[in-house]
Structures are given as structure tokens and as C-alpha cells.
């Protein structure tokens, strides 16, 4: 159901490296999961309200007020690479 090409595509989109052996295993496992979803989709949901969240609460919000931010250097210290007040990444050109 899930072929190896799909596994490689999804891995690329998620920036994950997978070797040939893993692709084979993952294709089978992902196929099983999708198969299970197919089973769910056979259930009659004609009169069931769509649900976007498992917890039955809504409208959780806060007033528009400021809270202190982190000190710059505290945040910078967490980064694998930084320069002065900035985070640093390998060069990025296209969007």
C-alpha cells in the first residue's frame, strides 16, 4: 500500500535520512498504519459532528499584555551556532 518511493518522499519532506533497509521496514509499517486508518474510514460517521480536538474545550485565550522575554544571551547560548546577538545557520538562498 505504501511503496518505497512514498517513504523516501516523506523522509525528504521531514529532512530524515533513511537507508535502504529502513525504507523496506518503514514501508511495511506505514502501510499497516494507513491500513488501520482505512478500517476506521469504514465506520458510518453520518451523524457524527466533526471534531478538531480530543479535549472538549474551546476558546482558551489570553489578554493582549506583555510578559518579559528571555535575555538575548540566554537564548543564544542554547543555539548550536551563533554570532553576536544572532543565531547562525548555513547559508540559505532560495525561499
Amino acid at each position: 500500500m505504501i511503496d518505497e518511493k512514498t517513504v523516501r518522499d516523506v523522509a525528504r519532506l521531514s529532512r530524515l535520512e533513511v537507508d535502504d533497509r529502513q525504507v523496506e521496514v518503514l514501508a511495511r509499517q506505514m502501510g499497516d498504519i494507513i491500513g488501520y486508518m482505512d478500517m476506521l474510514s469504514r465506520i458510518d460517521t453520518e451523524n457524527v459532528e466533526p471534531m478538531a480536538h480530543v479535549v472538549p474545550i474551546s476558546n482558551v485565550w489570553r489578554p493582549d499584555s506583555l510578559r518579559p522575554s528571555m535575555p538575548n544571551q540566554e537564548a543564544i547560548r542554547l543555539a548550536p551556532d551563533a554570532e553576536g546577538e544572532y543565531f547562525r545557520t548555513p547559508k540559505v538562498v532560495s525561499g
Partner: peptide, 12 residues
């Protein structure tokens, strides 16, 4: 320039 720089700096 974008092409001559080796890194990008990020401001969040």
C-alpha cells in the same frame, strides 16, 4: 551579498 556570504544570521 547573498552569494558571497557563507552563513545566514537569524533574528527571531
Amino acid at each position: 551579498t547573498i552569494t558571497s556570504s557563507s552563513h545566514s544570521l537569524v533574528d527571531y
